[in-house]
Simulated assay, not measured.
Amino acid sequence: MSFEPYATLDPDRVLNAVTACGLWPDGRLLALNSYENRVWQVGIEDAPPVIAKFYRPHRWSDAAILEEHAFAQELAADEIPVVAPLVFGGRTLLHHDGFRYALTPRRGGRAPSLESTEQLEWLGRLIARIHSVGARRPFEHRGRIDRATLIERPMLSVLESTLLPPSQRDAYRIAAERVDAAVDARLGAVGPVRQLRLHGDCHPGNVLWTDGGPHFVDLDDARMGPAVQDLWMLANDDAGMQALLDGYQQMREFDFTELALVPALRAMRQLHYAGWIAARWNDPAFPAAFPFVAEPRWWEQHIADLHELAEELL
Rank of each mutant, 00 (worst) to 15 (best):
W60T: 05
W60C: 02
S61T: 03
A64T: 05
I65Y: 07
I65R: 07
L66Y: 04
L66P: 06
E67L: 08
E68T: 12
E68G: 08
A70C: 02
F71S: 02
F71N: 03
F71V: 04
F71H: 05
A72S: 06
Q73A: 14
Q73D: 06
Q73Y: 07
Q73G: 12
E74N: 08
L75R: 10
L75K: 06
L75N: 08
A76M: 07
A76R: 14
A77C: 03
A77H: 05
D78A: 09
I80M: 06
I80T: 08
P81Q: 00
P81K: 03
V82R: 11
V83I: 05
A84Q: 12
P85G: 03
P85T: 06
L86M: 13
V87Q: 15
F88M: 05
F88P: 03
F88V: 04
G89L: 15
G89F: 14
G89T: 09
G90M: 13
R91G: 06
T92Q: 15
T92A: 13
L93V: 13
L93P: 08
L94M: 12
L94P: 13
H96I: 08
H96C: 09
D97Q: 10
D97V: 09
G98F: 01
F99C: 02
F99D: 01
F99M: 06
R100T: 13
Y101I: 15
Y101P: 13
A102T: 12
A102L: 13
A102R: 12
A102K: 10
L103N: 04
L103R: 03
L103G: 03
L103C: 02
T104I: 09
P105G: 15
P105I: 14
R106A: 14
R107S: 06
R107A: 13
G108Q: 08
G109C: 11
G109Y: 14
R110I: 12
A111D: 07
A111E: 11
A111H: 11
A111M: 09
P112G: 00
S113M: 01
S113N: 01
S113T: 03
L114N: 01
L114E: 05
E115N: 00
S116P: 09
T117Y: 13
E118Y: 13
E118I: 10
E118L: 10
Q119W: 02
Q119S: 02
L120F: 10
L120E: 03
E121A: 15
E121H: 13
E121C: 12
W122Y: 07
W122H: 09
L123P: 00
L123Y: 01
G124H: 02
R125E: 03
R125Y: 04
L126M: 03
L126T: 02
I127M: 07
I127K: 07
A128I: 04
A128Y: 14
R129N: 07
R129Q: 08
I130C: 07
I130Y: 10
H131P: 01
H131G: 01
H131E: 04
S132M: 15
V133A: 01
G134I: 10
A135N: 06
A135E: 13
A135Y: 08
A135C: 08
R137V: 03
R137W: 04
P138N: 12
E140Q: 02
E140A: 12
E140R: 14
E140V: 05
H141A: 01
R142H: 00
G143F: 01
R144E: 07
I145M: 15
D146P: 15
R147G: 05
T149R: 09
I151L: 01
E152G: 00
R153L: 12
P154Q: 07
P154F: 05
P154Y: 11
L156I: 05
L156Q: 11
S157I: 06
S157R: 06
